[in-house]
Amino acid sequence: MKIALDIFTIVAVMAGAFFFLAGTVGLLRFPDPLTRLHALTKADNLGLGLVVLGLLPQTDWPLDTIKLVTIWLFALLAGATVGQLMACAARRGGSNTVDTLLPPNGNTVELSTPTYQIVGRQPFAAETNRVPSRHRDADLPLNSTALHRGPPT
């Protein structure tokens, strides 16, 4: 019985390590943020999940087991949430697309302090040049074909 459990641990941990390998390769090799995100979630969910699964027979029931499973559930929940939010951010073109978050008329945002408009606005114009124009439509529905338009970077 002990040997069977040990073999289970070895197989599961190795499978988990493989998914970390896959996630890393994907993160490095895939061409754009959305596909990289796809690779990342494999490492997040399956990699950590299989490692946790493999370690379960090696730990004490019940407290450590519950903790291990909780860790994995946290990772799943955080991965799903952050993945979706990051995909939204990536679809807008990342962090530098300040303009996509402004209202359509562009220049007049009611900022809380009048000073911001004068001094704080200037660099934004410079940033704008870095954004591909097709990424400027901020309010596309999530399920639109926009998801497939990420430019190869």
């Binding site: 950590l48 952050v82 962090s95």
Partner: peptide, 16 residues
Amino acid sequence: PEDVDRMMAAQLLGSG
């Protein structure tokens, strides 16, 4: 190149 990509790497480091 984007901060989103950097975040993904940080997230990978988190779970790893």
